[in-house]
Simulated scan of single mutants.
Amino acid sequence: MALRRFYIAPEMIHQHQPEITGSDAKHISRVLRLKPDDAIELFDGTGQGYRARIICVSSEIVKLTIESSFAFLSESPVHITLAQAMLKDRKMDDLIRPLTELGIDCWMPFYASRSVPSPKGKGLHKRLARWEKIAVEAVKQCRRGHIPDILPVNDFNAVLAASATCDGRLLFWEDTNHAFAIPRQAVKRVMLILGPEGGFAPLEVQQAKDHGFLTAGLGPRILRAETATLAAITLVQYCMGDMGNALPRNQA
């Protein structure tokens, strides 16, 4: 039977008695009703996992002892940065969980010229915190070892500048004549750019091409923005990552 799994901050691991607090402590004590001497699994978001045993438990704090550590084997061989133009309503919130499950390493939300205005200032900080929380919960469920980096919302120029470290660059655009194609050479770091509901402006597409981006389509049908994002990451993981290969499951 798989152990219950919880996130713990990396700096907490090296303490004499690591602790879990907050909502996870309440869940352990009140919902799961775990007791002293029960074993659980921990992940620190950096790719490292731990088998731990409960020393004492309450709804405020759970004290642990670490018994062993292991590396997770569930990360994709290709590092994927997904730059997503801001979408309306709660669509961005809804994308974080499946994209984390599908293996993105970095999420770069940005304002495209056709993005519908979204909250700024305090409202945007709250959304960023929510995205980070959703990503942690998704990692807990899908048994990844790494929590994706959730970057602050920026502009299109910042996205293009960040692509300099990538050896693969793709902008998915409904008006391109180029279908998605498997690259001839192995790609270690790839950036994908997906647009808002209204698509990209021609100037943005040209700017991306000037920075070495290839344009790619997703078939003859016009997809909703959020559907296009999930289709794009699935294609990339299948062709460049690990979705097309049967890899051994992580053993705790």
Rank of each mutant, 00 (worst) to 15 (best):
A2F: 12
Y7H: 08
I8Q: 00
A9E: 10
E11T: 08
H14A: 08
Q15I: 03
Q15M: 11
Q17P: 06
Q17C: 13
P18G: 08
P18L: 09
E19V: 12
I20L: 07
S23Y: 15
A25S: 08
I28Q: 05
K35T: 09
P36Q: 14
L42A: 07
T46F: 01
T46P: 00
G47F: 04
G49F: 01
Y50N: 02
R51V: 04
R51D: 15
R53V: 03
R53H: 11
C56P: 09
S59E: 15
I61N: 07
I61C: 14
T65P: 11
I66G: 10
S69G: 05
S69D: 09
F70E: 06
A71N: 13
A71T: 10
L73P: 03
E75F: 02
S76C: 04
L82Y: 11
A83Q: 05
A83E: 09
A85N: 07
M86Y: 05
L87G: 00
M92A: 08
D93T: 02
D93N: 10
P98S: 15
P98V: 06
P98W: 04
G103V: 00
W107K: 06
R114F: 14
P117M: 11
P117K: 13
S118M: 15
K120A: 15
G121F: 06
K126L: 15
R127T: 03
L128N: 10
L128M: 15
A129C: 09
A129P: 05
W131T: 06
E132P: 01
V136Q: 07
E137W: 13
V139D: 03
Q141C: 08
Q141T: 05
C142K: 00
R144V: 00
I147W: 06
D149A: 13
D149I: 10
I150H: 00
I150M: 10
P152G: 14
N154R: 14
D155N: 14
N157D: 15
L160E: 03
A162G: 03
A162S: 14
D167V: 00
R169A: 01
F172H: 01
D175W: 12
T176F: 04
I193M: 06
L194S: 07
L194G: 07
P196I: 09
G199Q: 03
F200K: 12
A201Y: 03
P202V: 06
P202Y: 11
L203A: 14
E204N: 12
E204A: 10
V205A: 04
V205K: 13
Q206P: 01
A208L: 04
A208S: 11
H211C: 12
G212P: 00
F213M: 06
F213K: 03
G217T: 11
P220V: 11
L223T: 08
A228P: 07
A231I: 02
A232P: 02
A232N: 10
V236I: 04
Q237M: 06
Y238I: 07
M240P: 01
M240K: 08
M243C: 11
M243K: 12
G244W: 09
N245V: 15
N245M: 09
N245P: 05
R249E: 14
R249D: 13
N250S: 14
N250P: 02
